[in-house]
């Protein structure tokens, strides 16, 4: 092959390479946004009276995620005195159809997650009832034992502790943290 031909091929190769690399598809500016992949919109606490089997709930719901509009539902936890409740926590993404239950993912990866309950001013004792595969507490299921009538708050937090879970609240970052007003009445 002649030298000039070789060189011409080089030029053509460079130019094609350049244009070829530009071919990736770009969405249009009018594309509607996708729903956030990992959104938690709703935290639902379901209390079952261990004696009467009566069920009550407390819900926090912010359907458009952080920012934007204010939460659409933010309940006060109302419990009876001197009662033991079995409490189940449900985490939902209500922007998806059907509603996506994120608590299942938390259960599957229990070794990376921990629910932390912090009460202020209420006569209440909370004990985590479930464990992850490493026998460390998880918190999707817990027992809440109430005492005398009182007012205060309970903070429900979900910690994401991949690789650093040791059963304590300190490590990791917070995926959920809601300060529910709480009344024992």
């Amino acid at each position: 092959m002649k030298k000039n031909q070789k060189k011409s091929i080089l030029i053509i190769a460079i130019i094609t390479l350049s244009f070829g690399a530009c071919k990736e598809k770009t969405p249009s500016p009018t594309t509607p946004p996708q729903n956030e992949s990992e959104l938690i919109t709703t935290v639902k606490l379901v209390f079952t009276d261990t004696a009467t089997k009566a069920v009550s709930t407390a819900v926090f719901s912010d359907l458009d995620g952080p920012g934007g509009n204010a939460p659409t539902q933010f309940d006060t936890i109302r419990l009876k005195p001197n009662t033991v409740y079995q409490t189940a926590i449900y985490l939902l993404d209500e922007t998806k159809t059907p509603v996506d239950s994120i608590s299942n993912e938390v259960l599957e990866e229990g070794q990376d997650h921990l629910f932390v309950f912090t009460k202020v001013g209420v006569n209440l004792n909370i004990q985590i009832a479930d464990k992850d595969i490493n026998s460390l507490p998880l918190g999707l299921l817990s027992y809440w034992s109430t005492a005398a009538v009182s007012n205060g708050s309970v903070s429900v937090a979900l910690k994401h502790q991949p690789g650093v879970k040791d059963g304590s609240a300190a490590p990791g970052e917070t995926d959920v943290e809601i300060l529910f007003p709480c009344r024992i009445q």
């Binding site: 992949s37 990992e38 994120i102 990376d112």
Partner: peptide
Amino acid sequence: KNHRQEYDVLRTSNAFKGPDFDYY
């Protein structure tokens, strides 16, 4: 042509694997 992808920490490892933000 600028394409920026930002990958946040995932809450669960079996969730979606793509970027959280994709800017073009």
